[in-house]
Design a protein around this nucleic acid. Sequence first.
DNA 1: GCGAGATCCTAC
DNA 2: TAAGGTAGGATCTCGC
Length: 862
Amino acid sequence: MVDTNILGCCWIELPSGRWFPRTSTSQFSKTSRCQLEVDVSWQDFISHAPEGDWATVARFRIHSFDIECAGRKGIFPEANVDPVIQIANVIQLHGDGDVLTRNVFTLKSCAPIGHADVFCYDNEVDLLCAWADFVRELDPDIFTGYNINNFDFPYLLERATYLKVSNFEYLGRLLNVRSVIKETVTQTKIGKRTYKTINFEGRVPYDMLLVTKRDFKLRSYTLNSVCQEILGEQKEDVHYSIITDLQNGDEQTRRRLAVYCLKDAELPVRLLRRVLSFTNDVEMARVTGVPITSLLTKGEQVKVVAQLLRHGKQAGYFMPSHQGTGGADQFEGATVIEPVRGYYTDPIATLDFSSLYPSIMIAHNLCYSTLLKSTTAKTKLGLSDDQVTRTPANCTFVRSSVRSGLLPQILQHLLAARKKTKALLKEAKDPVLQAVLNGRQLAYKISANSVYGFTGAQNGKLPCLEISGSVTAYGRAMIEQTKREVEAHYTVANGYESDAKVIYGDTDSVMVNFKVKTLERSMELGREAAESISTKFIDPIRLEFEKVYYPYLLINKKRYAGLYFTRPDKYDKMDCKGIETVRRDNCPLVADVIGTCLRKLLIDRDPGGATNYAKQVISDLLQNNVDISQLVITKELTKNDYAGKQAHVELMKKIKKRDPGNAPKVGDRIPYVITASTKNAKAFEKAEDPIYVLENSIPIDAKYYLENQLSKPLVRIFQPILGDNAESILLRGEHTRTKTVVTSKVGALAGFAKKKEICLGCKSVLPKDRETEAVCAYCRPKESTIYQQELGHHRMLENRFSELFTECQRCQGSLHEEILCTSRDCPIFYIRKKVQMELESSKMKIARFGKPVLQDDEMLSN
DNA sequence: GCGAGATCCTAC
DNA sequence: TAAGGTAGGATCTCGC
């Protein structure tokens, strides 16, 4: 055996020519082989299905369910105390439009439901037993629901164990194998976290909460909010404290609960049908060779490891088991070209390296198995200069003529497979097949891109900073070279109309101002430049012309907006990068205003209209005419211990005391609004739960929203267009005068402040002895007219309220029941609440006019 | 008032 | 044995 460990980081060459890990045999059998075995076990029966066999995917049986438990006030349900009272089930075949079955298992009687079977049980043990039997008989391929991994499944299993329900836990397809909760406690730098995993041999738990969190960037991830965003429909949101009351009522209130529960089981199925994520995940599982569940519960690493194992085995390699060094040295990343900030009314062409990092790794044969670790390795192995490559990061790799690396092979396979899939996609007619192929080509792309990250993951399975550092170093050199080539070639001296200028670039792209007037010419030059510069790089590195921005607003590094053209005749979209419109850490008001202003500026090219609009919004804001749902800021709670004080963290602590059952946990996004308070109060002291604010009429700090939320983003987008007086135009003017704020029901002063009654006609303060009257002496002659006005206003509010009420009833699917919904994601909820308050106050105003006088016809009719 | 540091979220 | 990476803007708190 020849030890050549200088070649490669930890590989040993055996006489047979095969490559084995340097780790001992015992370690190998404990880790690598285990992984290989798991890799081809039953778990990914789907991922090993033949690649062309997409039709089988469409017939998987999906079982979606949702449980309700009777919790206690202020306490999150605990499985050894609070009973499971209902389980709703919805069954569907994947790819089918129609639901096969709907049913609900209830504790105690429940009135019949038109569209679902109802099974009632007198005791909980029978209910759970029957449900488990139902699952086994149904024999689903896929379990789904919303938050089933972290709530419904663990709760059911814990509850069944507590109640000693016999045989409940046999929920998988293997006889005699129980589904058990495995808890792993991990200590990260973020804090202590426990993960729960449950085995269901032969079935795939596919939690839609995990899917939406992974695939969509949303302000809120409640089922309600997600459905609103993705399906465009709301569901009612019943506060957990009401559920117990409904259960303790009669068969009608339990039916009410069952309908609610059924909806929660049905929505995940609809989500699944809409987002096609399962199809994509099946493809991803096939491409990478990872069980589908891992795609939701684990990170990017497992995919790369699985591919390394699969391809490595084929090529005769074994993967070494790496001991995490916990190293913390960072390596240098990509270059971001210093932007030439401004508003461009010339077309700006964008050139991109496609799949930059994968193509670098292929082009330079960067791999664990081609790295020369020591400086003497080259001479020791007798390699000549043209057999090795020295990277800009000062690392040496052997060329593919000596040995072709494993990573480049994997990447080539992925890129070639993607190309093939895209060609098939072009010819595909069937929409299901199109979706499958699109998912597959996407999986190939994502897979290829995560290989680089894997080599740079220091706490990962097999980090190799020589590779990742070299990749980024090549990238930096390439973007610089591209910039130089463009600016050197496209000059007046070379016969072009102007000297081209690279105004910005990030990692793998350059934005070029060719200083030409038309889209056509810019595209033509862009294509030409991409073509000619590509020839200066090694295969398969390619620079491509992708799009033209016209006009283009370049605010800062990683912050810009522009109209995106791929053809000269019509823009594809307005593209915003890094600007408030795409960020979730501000309130919707800011995102909407900035979005609208940008559209007015870039699409309509109407700066006047944009400023007027912005001024109007500022005026509305200061006059409290902006709906509270527009002012809700959400931020993610990312850890348990924070160094400094922050609004969302302090609010979380407040809610924990007030309503512990509803307290947010790490990983949740916390919604809050900023309320008016003492003058120099910090923002974290003024943050409050939007619903609490609404229910207690706490005034909003409009000034905060103007000064700390709206003003800077507005100035940033207007300044490049209007110049330095943008700020004075927008923020100082008649429209910024403030109106008095509504008084609060809570707070230190609320008990002392005595509201002075004013005349409903001229708004003058009424003298003390006439406070109960509606108008002052001066307005007395006009009293009838003023009354009519108030009445008209009151009626308008009544109509508005009844419209909103009907809308909520429609949402909850019933027109003759009380509305229980308190969804903090629903704008209608906020408006309904607000109109209700206004209606109350209007009623009181009208009462001040006294009893209607009978002679008045108008009043008689009321 | 200013700068450092923490934090969030995004671009690539 | 849980975990792709770095660059970077914006905002807020806190200490000076």
